[in-house]
Design a protein around this nucleic acid. Structure first.
Lengths: 185, 185
DNA sequence: AAAATACATGTAATTATTGACATATAAAAA
DNA sequence: TTTTTATATGTCAATAATTACATGTATTTT
């Protein structure tokens, strides 16, 4: 999947591996993230497969910046992937629920502490998402692809942020109810 | 993480690898699942590490059943793991959001079809969760561990199911809103 | 001035996961 | 009777993810 995310961003504009990491961190991270080591490794593989090309940026002799660009083959691969709809629900993982599931024999105060701490983290996450303006994901207009309607793209970006917001709100509500239940044991 | 899930179930009662797969599929799968190949591989490793022991069930000569039991070391490891609270939010993944994020240039009807299909899948998932009675996760009383309070365990199992229900309901609501928005482009 | 952080790019080992291949008996369904 | 599904246990290759190690310049903060 990371390959398609990288293609998706490079379809917007050419950028460095470091830029890609920042793009992911600032937009898709709540539903897909990656470590920089995986990004660089995947970019290498994609270049080998002809999906992207790269060139060292000469204008900055001191910082060694490698700019990646999507190729026609890469655009075609991205389009093909987007054309194949998901037909099943992919599995999801939640470490907290694993721990809670097996917490019947834990000390009640310990469980409550952990849930309260998680609640704080979720609250912070929600507040962070509330600050985000997906419209600002757009690259500067002189650099970005001419063939894309970024106003329309921004609508889709916002939809994913809306799900992130709804998810955190749902989780907070559930945490409140769960904390209350455990408090009343 | 799978190691701790297996320890958690084996703490309830001894069981085969196949039983463990069924236990996971019937309870934790919405927040942690595993393929049988990973379960068998992980059980081997856990046996090598002294966390479980196994014995071939002689009473059934024709079906080759290997029963795993948690060891004292395994109980200790599970308790130690449960005693270390989560201190950060683990990353999550959602393939649909990745696709939606990059769908600005897709055909509107295609996007709508995919989302409507996902809605059906989520509705089915919700109905499935509504059928589940976590209290029925308990092993038969003559087989299970004496030292655990299964009524109390069941309370925690239900809390995780409640999150699953809330998650599907939240997702359905978001899908409805998102489908409406795209319809009105 | 020094320390910390940001901007950069890697490599490598390890762990985790996916998915296929493989085998075999028992029970249920067609 | 045959086919399908359930009950079982593996092994293995490939891919994905995590984590650490490594190096180096620029900018900001203390």
């Amino acid at each position: 999947m990371l390959k398609y995310i990288l293609l998706g961003f490079l379809n917007y504009q050419g950028m460095t591996g470091y830029d890609l990491k920042r793009s992911i961190d600032g937009s898709t991270a709540h539903f897909w993230h990656a470590y920089h080591s995986q990004i660089y490794t995947t970019l290498r593989k994609m270049e080998r497969d002809g999906l992207v090309t790269s060139v060292i940026d000469d204008t900055d002799e001191r910082l060694e910046r490698r700019i990646y660009q999507i190729t026609k083959q890469g655009k075609s691969k991205l389009k093909e992937w987007l054309g194949k709809s998901l037909t099943e629900l992919p599995p999801s993982k939640d470490s907290l629920l694993v721990r809670l599931f097996f917490s019947g024999s834990r000390d009640r105060q310990e469980v409550l502490s952990e849930l309260r701490f998680q609640r704080q983290l979720r609250q912070q996450q929600l507040e962070l998402y509330q600050q985000i303006k997906p419209e600002e994901y757009s690259p500067p207009s002189q650099l970005r692809s001419d063939t894309l309607d970024f106003d329309r793209e921004a609508k889709f970006w916002r939809m994913t942020l809306d799900l992130g917001l709804a998810y955190e709100q749902m989780y907070l509500k559930w945490l409140d109810e769960t904390i209350s239940q455990i408090e009343s044991f």
